[in-house]
Design a protein around this nucleic acid. Sequence first.
DNA 1: CGAGTTCTGTACTGAGTTGTCAATTACGGC
DNA 2: GCCGTAATTGACAACTCAGTACAGAACTCG
Lengths: 207, 207
Amino acid sequence: MARPRSFDRDHVLHAAERQFRTSGYNGTSVDDLSAATGLGRGSLYAAFDGKHGVLLQAMTGYFARLGQFAPKALAGPDEGALERLRRYLLRAVHGVPLADDVPPAPDRAAAACFAAKMALEIGASDPEVERTAKACFSAIATAVAECVRAAQRNGDIDPDADPDDLAYLLLTIIRGIDVVGAAGHSPARLTSIAESAFALLPRPRHR
Amino acid sequence: MARPRSFDRDHVLHAAERQFRTSGYNGTSVDDLSAATGLGRGSLYAAFDGKHGVLLQAMTGYFARLGQFAPKALAGPDEGALERLRRYLLRAVHGVPLADDVPPAPDRAAAACFAAKMALEIGASDPEVERTAKACFSAIATAVAECVRAAQRNGDIDPDADPDDLAYLLLTIIRGIDVVGAAGHSPARLTSIAESAFALLPRPRHR
DNA sequence: CGAGTTCTGTACTGAGTTGTCAATTACGGC
DNA sequence: GCCGTAATTGACAACTCAGTACAGAACTCG
């Protein structure tokens, strides 16, 4: 019985995320957010409680997307598990896309993981941001670990390897690729890094 | 025949680096820099050409320090090369210190590699920053590659492995540890990651 | 068609920002 | 001891920013 919202919440949060990933948190003004989302100042404050609120809700949305995508990309039959790990590693070369169907990003520094960028920029002084980023990383590691276990069941990875340790190592490599890419190293170099990482996965000793 | 500088240039750049690493580039105001360095506004502009100039020169200093430290930590006799690689990996757990004798940092997000932080925050829109960060990373990779070759000569690493590829992978892991640490993961977790990485280094197949 | 409720956009405020400038200070040579 | 040169200081003006307040628009229900 009142005027309905004229904007789509997720659409706005996507636009805000893109802005934050492009310019960073402190490099983004409320006017930038307003221009990027098409919302006026007042609406941003009423609906998201200002700049910091927009950031937190955008990160929460990012986390939710991740919690869907990572398992979707990594879960499956045991036979293909190793190859799924390889693809997941190689995906990092092109960065983290805004949405599953959207091209990853124009420039590499804006394509880095949203959670990683925010954690590095303001995580030290913003516990909520740090917590959300940690949750993102844990979610990825959990999905990767599950895939590692599948690969182990299929005899593609050394059964003595600890799946959780390996998963966190792979997560670290993926996030490291973001950083090395942000410094301007070529996609070819990043691909080489990802392939090297994949090649070093502990195979079962045959015999 | 004129008034000499009353400050030590390197000391000032160190203080500025600490400030930038703690608060980020856009999170640091010129007043913050002034307070951190003890220099007045005008002096900062006269000596370093303002905030951006301070950043570039601080990053250049960081690069120079790195160019000295990385080879120093990694070069040496072939026998100890593998262990030096391990120590270098484990060093990443505590972050990158401001100076060789200074404790790394209070909180983990401020302890991350200066070049990595700046590249992620403003590298996309600041080519000079991106270039300097890339140079830092390349310098590290070069030193690591040399150490890998030493370990190969000593029979500790598979001679078929490409030293440069392996070096870039190790660099990526080290920078990834920074990111995972900045998100609040425990030192124990980071240590585990570093040890896992070390354990996966390709050993020569003993006949 | 009207009333009530919520959304929307703009204008405003106070704080914080950058870059500059003239005045001051300190030193080294003469 | 004086003077020129350069560093230093503090203040200043123009600007941007975050957050708020208010007035108008839009929509639903009666």
